[in-house]
């Protein structure tokens, strides 16, 4: 596979390390009342869609960016690649 890195252009996927669903960005609040349940759902449950999947890849043998790649799990077509940091900021993560 080839991941079209937003800063570097197309790179072979073997330069990257895969983590999983991009929802892993949305780490729950540790002080929430049902924090344990929230963390359980966050860490263990997956949509695992057959179709478009937003997922985290780390460019370990490259620029060390975490990316959010939107890829179809049936065709493997990649429709979008973003820097995970930007996505995290958009989703309200900060300090």
């Amino acid at each position: 596979m080839i991941i079209n890195h937003p800063l570097l252009g197309p790179r072979d996927a073997s330069e990257f390390v895969y983590l999983g669903d991009a929802s892993l960005i949305d780490r729950p609040d540790w002080q929430a009342k049902d924090a344990q349940q929230q963390f359980h759902d966050y860490l263990y449950l997956r949509d695992n869609p057959a179709g478009a999947h937003r997922e985290l890849w780390f460019h370990e043998q490259g620029d060390r960016s975490w990316l959010v790649v939107t890829r179809d799990t049936i065709t493997h077509e990649i429709t979008n690649v973003e820097l995970a940091r930007d996505v995290a900021l958009q989703r309200g993560r900060g300090r």
Binding site: L19, F58, W66, V87, A88, L89, R93, G94, R95
Partner: peptide
């Protein structure tokens, strides 16, 4: 190292 970069870029990008 990979884990720390995940924390830095994905969890606390404002640090």
């Amino acid at each position: 190292f990979r884990h720390l970069e995940f924390c830095r870029q994905c969890l606390w990008p404002g640090l």
